Amino acid sequence: GKMTGIVKWFNADKGFGFITPDDGSKDVFVHFSAIQNDGYKSSDEGQKVSFTIESGAKGPAAGNVTSL
């Protein structure tokens, strides 16, 4: 299901970062391709987002990331 969290950091040059879930669980990796914004796929530190957890090649990753 959908979770909410805060972007801990995001490196636009490398195209990835981490989200800290609101439920206190482990930080989740986020790749720019998962960000659902139109246009520039980046996110700012401290941005509140909703997301799903997908199982990626390197473990859990955020999917369907949407700014709230």
Rank of each mutant, 00 (worst) to 15 (best):
I35C: 12
I19L: 05
D44K: 15
K14D: 04
L68K: 03
S55N: 14
E45G: 13
A34N: 09
D44P: 15
H31Q: 04
V49A: 00
Q47F: 09
V49M: 04
G63D: 06
K26T: 10
I6F: 10
W9K: 01
V7G: 01
D44T: 15
K48N: 06
K58L: 11
K48I: 08
A61V: 15
D23H: 05
G59P: 05
F16W: 14
S42V: 14
G46C: 13
N37T: 13
I53D: 02
T4E: 04
K41V: 11
S43F: 15
A34K: 09
N37G: 14
K41M: 12
P21W: 04
S55R: 11
K58A: 09
S55Q: 14
T66N: 08
V49C: 06
T4R: 01
G17E: 01
A12R: 13
K58D: 08
S67E: 08
T20L: 08
K41C: 14
K58N: 11
H31N: 03
A62Y: 01
Q47T: 13
D27S: 04
K14H: 08
S42H: 12
G63F: 14
F18Y: 08
K8Y: 05
K41T: 13
V30C: 07
K2N: 09
E54T: 13
M3T: 06
V30Q: 00
P60I: 10
A62H: 01
G63K: 15
T20C: 11
G63V: 15
S25Y: 04
Y40V: 11
G39Y: 11
D38E: 12
I35D: 03
T66V: 13
T66A: 08
G56P: 03
G24V: 02
F29Y: 08
N11I: 02
P21M: 04
W9M: 02
T52W: 07
A62F: 02
K48F: 08
K48H: 13
K2C: 13
G46L: 11
I6Q: 07
I6Y: 11
I53R: 04
K41I: 12
D27C: 09
D23N: 09
G15C: 08
D44F: 15
I6H: 09
D13C: 14
G63W: 12
D27V: 05
K48Q: 08
T4K: 06
V28A: 01
G24F: 05
S55Y: 15
F51G: 02
G1T: 13
S33K: 07
A57M: 12
F18M: 07
P21I: 05
Q36R: 08
Y40R: 08
N64M: 08
T52G: 02
D27F: 03
M3I: 10
F29V: 01
E45M: 14
K14E: 05
I19H: 02
F29D: 02
Q36P: 06
F18T: 00
V7S: 00
D23C: 09
V28W: 03
G59Y: 07
S67Y: 15
W9E: 04
G24R: 03
G59R: 07
K58W: 15
D22A: 06
K2A: 09
L68G: 05
T4D: 01
V28M: 03
S42C: 14
Y40T: 09
N64F: 09
D38R: 08
G63P: 01
D44G: 14
T66H: 09
V30D: 01
M3D: 03
G1P: 13
G56C: 10
D22L: 06
G56Q: 11
S55H: 14
N11P: 03
D27A: 05
T4I: 07
G24D: 03
K58I: 08
V28R: 00
A34W: 04
Q36D: 10
